[in-house]
Design a binder for these strands. Structure first.
Lengths: 113, 113
DNA sequence: AGTATATACATCGCCTGTCAATGTATATAC
DNA sequence: GTATATACATTGACAGGCGATGTATATACT
């Protein structure tokens, strides 16, 4: 973990939804996917991860069900609802807008290029 | 204000420092500059702004002095120290890294292009 | 004279997301 | 029998952002 989590704050839910919009998954797997995709630069803390799941479910963006593993630890799978897909697409648009804006605001002084 | 401030959270200090690295300024002016640069999409709340100034000063990134206005409201000017300039340059690098990472993590599912 | 608006700084208390610490349980490898 | 990996979950503390509120000066309008 080398990326400051303060800078990812606010995108946690979007990152999780990006995973769930492509296929049902569960906490541990999503976190592994994030670690791999970031080449070990970033991972979600468990408290953050499960807290985000709770919020997403409360908002109707995801639904959960227990996997039917006959061996190993049990898994709680999450599935994105249509509302969740909409939320994700909207979050992506917001990210693009925020990214553009931050780039502009940071460049104000013309110091960085 | 149409941009969710949750997405800017964590960049407040960087945005302020971008202004102060190019020239000394004061709270009200910086906020106006942000509003203009963002075409009215974003502005800092005063409590956020002055809270950030306090932290930046506590960390030695900026120093402050009262302006010598003979008319109108008094202004507290802020000046970036060398440590502050370093902090800003480092923050810019972190932003670039975070931006790249978020783009990658959000693209995981290959849903957005 | 009174009111509204713009400029300008500042603080208090609340809310929310993150995290360290801790706990539970199953399975495999040494 | 002990360490490691898989897997889920909660609790309490902390930090940043924000609504509300307060102070003060100057200008414009009525």
């Amino acid at each position: 973990m080398s990326i400051t989590s303060d800078l990812i704050r606010g995108h946690t839910e979007t990152i999780i939804m990006a995973n769930l919009c492509s296929h049902d998954s569960y906490g541990y797997e999503i976190n592994k996917a994030i670690q791999e995709a970031s080449d070990g630069q970033y991972e979600l803390k468990e408290a953050t991860l499960y807290g985000a799941f709770r919020r997403l479910e409360e908002n109707g963006y995801i639904v959960s069900y227990w996997g039917d593993e006959t061996t190993g630890a049990r898994r709680r799978y999450y599935h994105s609802t249509d509302k969740g897909k909409e939320f994700f697409e909207n979050s992506c648009k917001e990210w693009i807008a925020a990214k553009t804006l931050i780039d502009k605001l940071i460049d104000t002084g013309g110091i960085m290029k």
